[in-house]
Amino acid sequence: MILFFGTKTGKPSTKILQNTTCPHCSQIKTLTVTVRPNLFHLFWIPLFKIGTSRYAECSHCKRVYYNKEFSTEMLEEISN
């Protein structure tokens, strides 16, 4: 019997951070956070989530911030 299993990313969800300033260019309301779940699948059917990846991008300076680079201000607004 052959089993096809592996991981793939799910559908991304985005959120604009309204009250957060970009640490690089100091512009307000330019950060957009994207959250992508990583899913385990068996026979191309997603079974459960094994993690998530998050990153924020500034629409003004195009700087990308990964999860470890998030400021406390960014983390507070993401959790709300």
Rank of each mutant, 00 (worst) to 15 (best):
H24E: 11
S79V: 14
N38S: 08
M74T: 01
E69N: 08
F70M: 09
I45A: 03
M74E: 05
S71I: 07
H41Q: 05
N38P: 00
N19P: 02
K62L: 15
H60Q: 10
S71F: 00
F48S: 04
I45R: 07
K49T: 14
Q18Y: 05
L31C: 01
C58H: 09
L17H: 06
T72F: 10
G51Y: 09
G10Q: 02
H24Y: 13
L39W: 03
H24K: 14
F5D: 13
S71W: 01
R63H: 14
T21P: 00
S13H: 10
C58V: 11
P12K: 00
G10N: 04
C25E: 02
F43N: 13
E76V: 15
T9R: 10
T32S: 14
T30E: 09
K68G: 01
R36G: 04
K49M: 11
Q18I: 14
G51M: 01
T21M: 09
S13P: 02
P23R: 05
G10M: 06
L17E: 00
L75G: 03
N38V: 14
L47R: 03
S13C: 01
I2Q: 07
L17F: 07
K8M: 11
F70E: 10
T14G: 01
M1V: 12
T7S: 13
R36P: 02
R63I: 13
I78Q: 07
N67W: 12
K49G: 06
F4N: 11
P37S: 05
P37I: 03
E73C: 09
L31N: 02
Y55P: 13
I45Y: 09
S26H: 11
M1K: 13
